[in-house]
């Protein structure tokens, strides 16, 4: 690994002052460090953001849950507040990678990285999340641009992620046995006014599946999904699964999610 300067800082201001074209923010490091070891990325400065107090903590109101960017997956998984208000979100966090990844990986890092097979991006779309950054608020619909690409500008820091509490919701993931990431994951959230169905792992970036949303908006039941046609064109096809198989998984997982909605 190429050498760099490690900076541990305490405020968002300090972070932004240090940020440059050759720096990177470090949260859990579960993506950044392997990428650096492989020589896929190198930086002159690593800015550790885990000691910035403003980026930590979980706050619940009657309508939403706000999770600090440096909150670890294990903390979301075991949070009583999250379990009570959006249990599917706690379960999603509990199913990310393995125990040691959950002890280090953070929600901010996961969202900023926007891996096409990551779990949290689907939660952001399905739970109408607002991403609060050092500069502005970004709705999840406008945040996830493309594979590993987000609306974040250079040096912009995610501070908190705010999820709207649904009436019921559920997340179902078919994990790749090797990487533990989602081969396909489907998040279903029912609100008074609409049903949202977010799919991860199936395309180059997380997306809302309008076909299933339409079916569930008129009849919220697993059987309503039977008649939906999911086109396999445009879906990922790789050594793990063909696009046809992924199209099939989307329906299977969506039905499971609807049945499991709490």
């Amino acid at each position: 690994m190429k050498s760099f300067n490690f900076h541990s800082i305490k405020s968002v201001k300090e972070a932004q002052k240090l940020a440059s074209g050759k720096s990177v923010y470090l949260a859990g490091g579960m993506t950044t460090i392997p990428a650096m070891k492989h020589g896929l990325a190198s930086y002159s400065d690593i800015i550790d953001i885990k000691n910035i107090k403003d980026l930590s903590g979980i706050k619940v109101s009657s309508k939403s849950i706000r999770i600090g960017a440096i909150t670890k997956h294990a903390e979301v998984a075991s949070s009583k507040e999250v379990r009570k208000s959006i249990s599917s979100l706690a379960l999603l966090a509990d199913g990310i990678g393995d125990a040691q990844v959950r002890n280090r990986g953070t929600i901010g890092g996961s969202i900023a990285n926007n891996d096409p097979t990551a779990d949290y991006p689907s939660a952001c779309l399905a739970l109408n999340a607002t991403i609060h950054t050092s500069n502005r608020k970004i709705h999840a619909n406008k945040f996830f641009k493309d594979m590993f690409e987000t609306a974040l500008k250079k040096g912009e820091l995610i501070e908190t992620v705010e999820f709207q509490i649904p009436t019921k919701s559920s997340y179902e993931k078919f994990p790749s046995p090797a990487s533990l990431y989602a081969m396909v994951g489907v998040y279903v959230a029912k609100y008074k006014s609409e049903v949202i169905v977010a799919v991860t792992g199936a395309q180059s970036v997380v997306y809302r599946c309008k076909e299933i949303e339409n079916a569930l908006n008129s009849n919220f039941s697993a059987s309503a999904i039977d008649g939906v046609k999911i086109k396999s064109s445009g879906l990922n096809s790789d050594i793990h699964a063909s696009s046809d198989y992924r199209a099939h998984l989307i329906k299977v997982l969506a039905k499971k999610a609807v049945t499991g909605c709490k």
């Binding site: 579960m30 125990a99 280090r104």
Partner: peptide
Amino acid sequence: SVKSCTLF
């Protein structure tokens, strides 16, 4: 428990 190979 953490992976010591992925931690500065």
